[in-house]
Design a protein around this nucleic acid. Structure first.
Lengths: 203, 203
DNA sequence: GTTGACAAATGACACTGTGTCACATATAAT
DNA sequence: ATTATATGTGACACAGTGTCATTTGTCAAC
């Protein structure tokens, strides 16, 4: 999280930094981004950056905060709406991200966000993006909203496994959505994956 | 791939470089490794490294080549043995990696290999590890070995989707295997995931 | 309106790492 | 012995990092 100092900055200055950061985080994969480029573009001194943020990760995490909250609320609403259908909820997340977020010119930025997601989440200086996407469903609050009566789920552990699989498949579909030229193809594949997950691959 | 020059080196020298590389690739996640450490440890000049390899990626890829081939052959044999059961084949891959490879002291190195796998495979300078693991099943040769008669698969595209899902789930299980202290827990979860994939989550 | 004290901004500094290239040194071929 | 040709080398110019002593700004108290 940013420091007090950053928060107290004028909206104008904060914005200039955030715009420069978004530009840099959009330009190349996360590991290739540099603080140097951000401070130069935002026209602040190198030392100032460290007065505001502890690291690149810190800054990006802050930039994702709003989206994450939006997503959290969206999921909660959707789960209530569908009376606890996780599959519907994940499909809704998928559509939300590909459409609501894809509408504006920040598309390339979100593409990077998805790309930046690592397979392994727990290495010290690593981005927590996947955890954030999966996040809500790891919290009690969300789990309680899921209706397991129609599912072959015995205990909470099995529920976690199902969520894990749904998450994997959703992330993969999102990657494909940004990778393929065709949004349709990616969605069709995603629906098929969900279908397999619900009904199985065996005849 | 390494240059001719590297190949012509004495076994002793090649080995010294490979040992130093393995040490470095084991030490930290791939992005944090440095050529500097490798050349210092291997006691070769910085310039020499670039005479042998074009990059870190190049070197690591070369180091993985043998394992990849071993795995490819193993999969092919297993598919024939099981008369084309993809699920059995993937489970065998899982056991092969966690046991056959886990036997020796290179465990930490393989752990890193799995960690290094990226969600997105197609960015220019990115490691191709996931592609390599998934690789064989993208080739005609392997696809033909799979028996789809008992599966709900209409065309090749759907087969690819199933393989994609199996791959995702297997990689996740491998990550967990190295993450958990318990090898058993990871395998149990993996079996459950395969079960869900085969028979579906719905009642 | 001057002072002082605290907050914020700055960029030079010492590091670590990169890839390259002109030169040095082997090895082989004539 | 001479000339090619292949291989090895480390200094060099860059790019980026995080820190810190110093400067600059702000504002309340006198």
């Amino acid at each position: 999280m940013p420091t007090e100092t950053f928060m107290k900055l004028s909206e104008e200055k904060k914005n200039k930094i955030l715009v420069a950061a978004k530009k840099e985080f959009t330009r190349v994969p996360f590991e290739q981004t540099s603080i140097k480029n951000i401070v130069e573009d935002a026209e602040i001194a190198r030392g100032s950056f460290y007065q505001y943020f502890t690291s690149k990760e810190d800054l990006l995490q802050y930039m994702m905060k709003d989206d994450k909250e939006k997503l959290d609320n969206f999921i909660k609403d959707k789960l209530k709406e569908t009376h606890g259908d996780v599959f519907e909820a994940y499909l809704a997340i998928y559509d939300f991200i590909t459409q609501k977020m894809g509408e504006d010119k920040d598309l390339a930025f979100y593409k990077r966000l998805i790309e930046n997601a690592k397979v392994v989440e727990d290495e010290s200086s690593m981005l927590r993006i996947p955890k954030d996407l999966k996040g809500p469903f790891q919290q009690e609050e969300f789990l309680k909203l899921i209706d397991v009566s129609k599912l072959q789920i015995q205990d909470e552990e099995e529920l976690h496994i199902v969520i894990q699989m749904l998450y994997l498949v959703t992330r993969k579909a999102l990657v494909n959505n940004f990778k393929y030229q065709s949004t349709e193809k990616a969605r069709k594949e995603y629906l098929k994956m969900i279908d397999y997950l619900k009904n199985g691959v065996l005849k």
